[in-house]
Design a protein around this nucleic acid. Structure first.
Length: 697
DNA sequence: GAGCACTGC
């Protein structure tokens, strides 16, 4: 094991043990084995959670502070217990509600049902939840409401001050998702108008200090509003220890030249030298993972003796439901499971039984370039916070070990403390329209927990202006702007839907919008390319991918929404169910905002014009001299190609519009449709007026 | 002839 030096034993050997270790939030004492078996009443179990001994403190802080920040590691029980404490203390009296937000739907559902169970009530009565497509609450009965932060943002459109809530707990704030950040910015504004509202920001990392700075109330001269309420303006910070076990950290002695290879060797070393316990290996994406699975499987084949007993399983979101579920099956006696995963296992999924974590130090991250208006997925180094989170995955059942495929020096000196918040890595178009719809006029002056770049904001304003969603004063136009804001999709898609109402093809366009909003309706898999491609040809339309989607939807509908039909045609049944759900929601919204639901009965010109009305900015022209299918974007003369998965691949029509770009070695257009260039001037005269008329021929 | 980290309304 010369490649590795033994882990540097830190004080208490905790996961959160680095140079900032002693700061303020780490309570040293924690029970290392509080899990016990056998019967215990729910009440006893609740009292055994680390958060229980802070119950009085938390309630006191919430009573006396506008904002309370709770730093708690996984297993502290904060998410399930704090809402119950608040209810027990009377915060839900008088028809008020307590809200607890989560970034993900699954978490909302599981936490809500757990809390309902602990309280001995039926889910949907006193304890309920709301996620997109599912509202499991009862008016005047539900007092504890769990919801995604996105849903709470939507609720603000009807009730900007969130008047029915007495306390709002924003959980997992350290993940810094876009909707969490918007929510935090808006909640800060609400606090000024509603000093009686209490906020609890719950986070797993030590970033609490910057969060505290953000929520510090400025004292206004002459009107010490909050002092009248007897509230502290300074947020309170409380730290609750977790219930994880010690994780011993090991670093690479030297930087590794190839992390996939190093990861595979490390897994084999663990298998050879360490006692039983499953291994979780973090890589960046499907390519890495498939390569590692292959290398390990080869090893098992050729070197059977040492590596027998290894069960190697890949895990990423693109896998089918059944393939994903394999990783949760219990490891047979005498075997060792190795799960090779993307970041999905860092936050979204929890694997029990993991004792060893191998961390490559990388993940795929989205970056947005506001100059080219292109979002890219890039393999980038993770932050210290992520590294700790990954390591913690080894300490859920018993003390574990984490092998970092980078040096300690690299960790200490070169890794950033926190990742870049998503809002600084994304296109801001949806964000801007949401704020506008909530009446925030001065978008550029909005007080964010982390500010997006001015370039990204300006680019978003430009795009929204060209869509006719914002006017010269950057106010929402009526009705288009307000309608776009009501539709929970990218504004370009929303604009397409609105245009389809006038063009008489809204039934078709709503179907297309629903298909575009799911990841992929095709079954992916390396072994079945050929069959899958042949199936695609059965639906292929000369106009392009959007019309092909219509053909598929029609076939699915005519089959009676049959899963066998999907299977036969290499179409993902679950994705199609999702399409139906989204389509239903869009239909309801369209009716509510006064759009005409109408079918164009096969007039695909209307459909193409509607696509044009939303996506005119993505128009491309085939280069005349090009023999390899090179297109240039009209707007920026960017070099782009039709993606091989498109039905128009190798067809290469002269004029196309794409739905999105995928950047690898080239820029590929995904989901492409043919257009007539004269429609561009019709759809967006202001946008294309500078182009010479002859350039459109 | 290529490939989609992960969420969410």
């Amino acid at each position: 094991m010369s490649f590795w030096k033994p882990g540097t034993e830190r004080p208490q050997g905790r996961v959160v043990d680095d140079e900032e270790g002693g700061v303020l939030f780490l309570s040293g004492s924690h029970s290392s084995s509080s899990s016990s078996y056998g019967y215990a009443s729910i009440e006893k179990q609740r009292q055994r959670l680390p958060v229980y001994k802070y119950r009085t403190a938390i309630l006191y802080l919430v009573e006396t502070h506008a904002t309370t920040i709770v730093v708690g590691e996984t297993g502290s029980g904060k998410t399930t217990q704090i809402p119950q404490y608040l209810k027990e203390a009377g915060w839900a009296a008088g028809g008020r509600l307590i809200a607890c937000t989560q970034p993900r739907r699954l978490a909302v559902q599981t936490v809500a049902s757990r809390v309902a169970e602990e309280m001995g009530v039926k889910l949907g009565d006193e304890v309920g939840y709301t996620i997109r497509f599912e509202d499991v609450t009862k008016p005047d009965v539900t007092v504890l409401k769990f919801l995604t932060d996105g849903v709470l943002l939507r609720e603000m459109m009807d009730d900007p001050l969130l008047t029915k809530y007495s306390v709002i707990m924003v959980d997992e704030a350290h993940e810094r998702s876009i909707s969490t950040d918007i929510l935090l910015g808006l909640l800060k504004k609400i606090q000024r108008r509603r000093p009686e509202l209490r906020l609890i920001i719950s986070s797993a990392t030590i970033e609490a200090k910057s969060m505290s700075d953000f929520f510090r109330m400025r004292k206004k001269r002459r009107e010490p509003e909050n002092e009248e309420h007897g509230l502290e303006v300074e947020p309170a910070i409380l730290s609750v220890e977790g219930r994880g076990f010690n994780v011993q950290i090991n670093y690479a002695e030297e930087p590794v030249p190839d992390y996939v290879q190093a990861a595979v060797s490390t897994v084999l070393l663990i298998h050879e030298r360490e006692p039983t316990g499953d291994v979780l290996l973090f890589l960046t994406g499907q390519d890495d993972i498939d390569a590692a699975v292959q290398l390990l499987s080869d090893e098992v084949q050729t070197n059977g003796k040492q590596s027998s007993g290894l069960i190697v399983l890949p895990l990423y979101s693109g896998l089918s439901r059944a393939e994903q579920e394999l990783v949760f099956s219990p490891t047979p006696r005498g075997k060792r499971k190795v799960v090779i995963s993307t970041n999905i296992a860092e936050t979204s999924l929890t694997l029990e039984g993991v004792v060893y974590v191998v961390d490559s130090g990388f993940s795929k991250q989205r970056f947005y370039n506001p100059i080219s208006d292109i979002e890219n997925l890039v393999v980038a180094p993770i932050s210290k916070a992520s590294a700790r989170q990954r390591a913690g995955r080894a300490g859920r059942v018993r003390p574990g070990k984490c092998y970092r495929l980078y040096t300690e020096e690299y960790f200490l000196k070169h890794m950033s403390n926190e990742g870049i918040p998503e809002i600084q890595r994304s296109n801001m178009v949806s964000c801007v329209i949401q704020l506008k719809a909530l009446g925030i006029d001065n978008i550029l002056g909005f007080d964010w927990p982390a500010s997006p770049s001015p370039e990204a904001m300006i680019r978003a304003l430009e795009i929204l202006y060209s869509l006719g969603v914002l006017d010269d004063d950057a106010k929402l136009t009526s009705p288009t702007g307000f309608q776009v804001a009501e539709i929970p999709l990218d504004p370009m898609v929303s604009k397409m839907i609105i245009a389809s109402s006038e063009l008489g093809c809204s039934q078709e366009i709503i179907t297309i919008a629903a298909v575009l909003s799911v990841q992929s309706i095709w079954i992916s898999g390396r072994g079945m390319q050929k069959e899958s491609d042949e199936a695609k040809l059965r639906f292929a339309a000369a106009e392009g991918d959007h019309v092909t989607f219509l053909n598929i939807y029609k076939g699915f509908h005519q089959s009676g929404k049959s899963s066998q039909w999907c299977h036969k045609n290499y179409i993902n049944y679950h994705a199609m169910r999702k399409v139906l759900e989204v389509r239903d929601q869009l239909k309801r919204i369209a009716q509510r905002i006064g759009l005409v639901l109408k079918s164009c009965d096969g007039d695909m010109q209307a459909v193409r014009k509607a696509v044009c009305a939303g996506f005119f900015a993505n128009a491309c022209h085939l280069e005349a001299y090009s023999h390899n299918g090179m297109y240039k974007t009209l707007r920026g003369s960017q070099e782009v190609y039709i993606h091989p998965s498109s039905v128009l691949f190798r067809v290469n029509p002269k004029w196309v519009i794409y739905n999105s770009l995928v950047s690898t070695d080239r820029q590929y257009m995904r989901n492409v449709i043919t257009i007539d260039p004269s429609w561009l001037l019709e759809a967006a005269p202001h946008f294309y007026q500078l182009l010479k008329p002859d350039s459109l021929h």
